[in-house]
Design a protein around this nucleic acid. Structure first.
Lengths: 237, 237
DNA sequence: CGCGTGGTTGACACAGATCAACCAGAGTGG
DNA sequence: CCACTCTGGTTGATCTGTGTCAACCACGCG
């Protein structure tokens, strides 16, 4: 009976405001507050904890659950059998992941650092969607948001230079996990590289160069303070 | 009153079988045949024709219509202001595009060659989705299919070599538009390059190399016969 | 303290980009 | 029917951004 996902969580965006499809809602209204799952008595959210590096689900496994990050960080990735890896997204506290419209997962998800998630049966969400069009809209909105992110990332991977990619990454993380003006990265250089389609050496070099140019300050490899967001944004086009 | 989109059209996939979310449909059944929009009296499909190179909609424009390609080919792309371009997808006859869950488009779409599309008001689809969960499911499935394609493409753009990219492209086109064992490409080398994150020269060189190795035959730049799909698949991993 | 993991930096190599010439076919007009 | 041009494609020579390989460094931990 517990309300598992707050709407804020379900709609948490990669930084932009959540949007329901605004036209076409008709007489139904956009869900507000915590009502989204209040109408789903079957919903029970269970907390799970995964250790750093642990797999949450694998490529092609049945997609039985939907997840919300409570603390920590998760990466979704595709692997080639010679070890090449492409990270599709980093999921941070409040983000929802693992939602599929097909039976199986198409990416693996694993914990970047020790991570706690809440899970809900996909089946419960879909049953709820049968009875409440607003839930169906919310599920669609989550998939649409992921698609938007993937489209932006294709441009980055296909056409941007190393510096532009790192600048984009810094601005994304600045948006999503800055506390008190300081970015505290949960992921290592290799993860960043696999997200940006670069090598870890190149990521390291670009960060050093940005530091030398006064655009940021590094205090330990994982703590970054941006000093010139405007300049970074101008590289991001 | 006309049924505008057949289900086959709405669900036409990039080559794989259409999937509704199979668990969770509950007592409602998957839509079959032409019933999807039969229940939407307001639906009127109008045919539009666009000349080669003509823009169908622009980045950030209001997303008022959803489109189905009837003949020709469409590309969706993102542009950087220095002219760099990333093509996200090619849309071929039967494919649906332009469906957004947010108010505006996030990519431009333009005609690769002379193209005819059918359009339907997005508003009509969303009204239909209010009344029929199966329509809502179908809209979600379209977005989910686009997301799957984007995820695969991120791996290609981030981690594959030029030869692997071209092999993947050939196999995709083989799946999607081969007639009588021959691929007839609607797009030029520059379009292929902007889709694969390469230059047109590299695309041309790889195709020539594949031809020299007997993997394919070129009869004119736009007609390709694959002679060794197995070998291409082995490059595709 | 020694060790292991993760990060940085340097030297060098190479895949693919860039620049440039040339070629093929389709219109177009004389 | 032949120039002529235009667009699109191929191929070659060279350049360069990023990858590769390797050494070293810094920190945390048993």
């Amino acid at each position: 009976m517990a309300v598992v996902f707050s709407q804020a969580a379900l709609l948490s965006d990669f930084g932009t405001q959540p949007h329901f499809p605004s036209p076409g809602i008709g007489h139904n209204e956009t869900l507000t507050g915590h009502s989204l799952f209040a109408s789903c008595p079957g919903l029970l959210g269970t907390a799970f904890t995964y250790a750093k590096g642990e797999e949450i689900y694998g490529d092609d496994q049945p997609a039985e659950y939907v997840y919300e990050v409570m603390s920590g960080a998760v990466r979704t990735c595709k692997l080639l059998d010679d070890g090449r890896r492409q990270i599709g997204a980093f999921l941070l506290p409040g983000d929802v992941f693992g939602l599929e419209s097909t039976p199986n997962h198409r990416l693996t998800a694993d914990a970047v650092i020790d991570t706690t998630v809440r899970i809900v049966r996909r089946r419960s969400l879909e049953t709820a969607a049968q009875n409440d069009i607003r839930v169906a809209n919310a599920l669609w909105a989550i998939t649409a948001r992921d698609l938007r992110h993937a489209e932006d990332h294709m441009l980055l991977l296909g056409r941007k230079t190393a510096s532009e990619r790192v600048a984009a990454f810094l601005l994304e993380m600045d948006r999503r996990l800055t506390v008190a003006g300081l970015i505290e990265l949960p992921m290592c250089r290799r993860d960043i590289a696999d997200y940006l389609g670069l090598t870890l050496e190149t990521v390291s070099r670009v960060l050093s160069q940005f530091q030398a140019e006064g655009m940021l300050g590094l205090s330990g490899a994982r703590h970054i303070a941006l000093h010139n967001r405007q300049r970074l944004r101008s590289m991001n086009i």
